[in-house]
Amino acid sequence: MSDLFPVLRGRAWLLGDNISTDVLSPGPYVHAPMAERLRHVLEAVRPDFASGVRHGDIVVGGRNFGVGSSRESAPQHLKDLGVAVVVAESFARIFARNAIAIGLPVLTCQGVGGLVQDGEIVAVDVVAGEVVRSDGTALQAERIPPEMLAVLARGGIVPMLRAIAADQGSTAE
């Protein structure tokens, strides 16, 4: 499994507590073209995020990350903008489920918000649940259960659905 998840190394974007789905994916833009939707991600709390985030960056949140609606665009927008993993003190339930479903790893890690600095390079081992700073200090996150790691390993639920469809097709013939 660890072959499928190399240790992720990226620049941290430090966000606070209660980052909501309304700031991750604002309601007024739900039917806007994708490029425009992505421009408004986190606009209310980090106006520099959408234009500054790079492929492989890591989002570090506080408590209750992803609180709010069931909109899957909240984790999807982060993934589309290149975010490799979200590490937070705690997650809202639906956000965490949605993230796994679309293949974006999320790690619950006590103390991460108070330790990691905005902009610093951190390494995240998704399978081992380790978050390591550049000075070597490490935090242990909660391990992702094997059932969820298996979904992540397949790249989320969509590849699983394709397999089901292929099965249905073969039984139909």
């Binding site: 069931s70 639906i94 489920r97 949605n98 479903a101 679309i102 639920i157 659905l161």
Partner: peptide, 8 residues
Amino acid sequence: IGSTEMAY
């Protein structure tokens, strides 16, 4: 739940 999970 989210839309991908609903599809499943």
